[in-house]
């Protein structure tokens, strides 16, 4: 059987070479399942729960895409990737879309030939130190030992920040964020640094959260968002507008609860009608059916609801909306119009 599987794989290799040209959309539809690259466990963003069901903020994006394309938010195969393997997994076609707290940067977009489709979370890197260290600003951290996850933008930002301020640090490299955290708690390093969202949630799980403080400096811009490969613009459009539909739905007041009602008959707001497919043919332009956005919102609700369920103040992670509020509320979320 082993041999026959191996031979089968070689054969499949030969056959697959002929089907190279099929578009991602067709491939996903033929497969009936969306391959979504996700993390091996980031609190609030993507993790399998005790019943083996993936949960989280990044996971919700993939579920929304699956709902739009396949009509079933559960038709997703989550492929766990590490910081090192995520881009190869995407480039090689192992995953159709990567939704894994991935920062949108110039070199990733241009040099790695990836397409970023907007931002689902605006983050920034911060520092956490024990209060006993007596430090109140990140600029006082000269000579500190810093626990840092390798292969991430965090590592590069850290080097930049210390160089700009002319101070030195000693890195303690780790493979995973959980490792960084346990080293920090074991006092193997003075400073724990990661995205601000991670700092707050990490501190809330410490035995004595009050003994630690998050320094006021946010030293980087970390726009996180879903990614696809260069070269398949139709597929890119689907991912981009799925995300935009989630954001617009919050702005327009379409929720998981009322989406069926809004889609049943045309309302007096033309943009809602265009999104819900009761007016115009936006779905058709995207290569999907008219109801695609209805399913996207029915999956896990609009952006605000997803945020509330996975990251919001009522969860243990307890993040405020901050930069991630709608532009009408003073945040940065701004979806182009559905027209």
């Amino acid at each position: 059987m082993k041999k026959s599987l191996f031979m089968g794989a070689l054969l499949a290799l030969g056959m697959a070479a002929t089907t190279l040209s099929a578009s991602t959309l067709e491939e996903v539809k033929a497969r009936g399942i969306l391959n979504c690259g996700t993390s091996t466990g980031v609190a609030g963003f993507s993790l399998p729960d005790a019943n083996n069901v993936y949960q989280g903020f990044d996971v919700a994006v993939c579920r929304a895409v699956a709902a739009a394309v396949l009509g079933d938010p559960m038709a997703v195969e989550f492929v766990p990737t590490t910081g090192k393997t995520r881009f190869t997994a995407l480039a090689s076609g192992e995953v159709d879309v990567l939704s894994r707290t991935t920062t949108w940067t110039f070199s990733r977009d241009v040099d790695l030939k990836l397409d970023f489709h907007g931002v689902n979370y605006y983050d920034g890197q911060g520092f956490m130190v024990p209060k006993s260290l007596g430090v109140t600003s990140a600029k006082d951290l000269d000579g500190a030992t810093v626990c840092i996850q390798v292969g991430t933008t965090t590592e590069l930002n850290l080097a930049d920040f210390f160089r700009v301020n002319g101070i030195t640090y000693e890195p303690v490299p780790t493979e995973k964020s959980s490792e960084s955290r346990s080293l920090y708690q074991a006092e193997a390093c003075d400073v724990y640094t990661t995205d601000a969202s991670g700092l707050a949630s990490a501190r809330s799980t410490f035995a004595d959260p009050d003994a630690h403080m998050i320094l006021p400096e946010i030293v980087s811009k970390e726009p996180l968002g879903p990614v696809t490969r260069h070269g398949d613009n139709q597929w890119g459009d689907i991912v981009r507008w799925t995300l935009n539909a989630l954001i617009s739905a919050e702005e327009l007041g379409i929720t998981k609860a009322n989406v069926a009602e809004m889609a049943a008959a045309p309302t007096n707001n033309p943009e809602i009608n265009r999104m819900m497919g009761t007016e115009g043919n936006l779905g058709e332009m995207l290569g999907l059916d008219a109801d695609w956005a209805v399913r996207v919102i029915a999956a896990e609700g609009n952006y605000g609801e997803i945020f509330e369920n996975h990251l919001g103040p009522n969860t243990q992670i307890g993040l405020e909306r901050g930069l991630n509020a709608q532009w009408t509320d003073g945040g940065l979320l701004y979806s182009p119009p559905f027209r």
Binding site: S39, T40, G41, V42, A43, G44, S46, L47, P48, D49, A50, V79, P80, T81, T82, K84, T85, A89, E175, K176, S178, R181, S182, Q185, S201, A202, S204, T205, F206, A207, T315, Q316, I317
Partner: peptide, 25 residues
């Protein structure tokens, strides 16, 4: 676990990402 398969060591990361158990090393 370094290539993203969930062997027992890889699974510890998953459990630690669950906020209820974050800190149980």
């Amino acid at each position: 676990s370094v290539i993203g398969l969930f062997d027992p060591i890889g699974l510890t990361t998953v459990v630690l990402a669950d906020m209820r158990w974050n800190g149980v090393y």
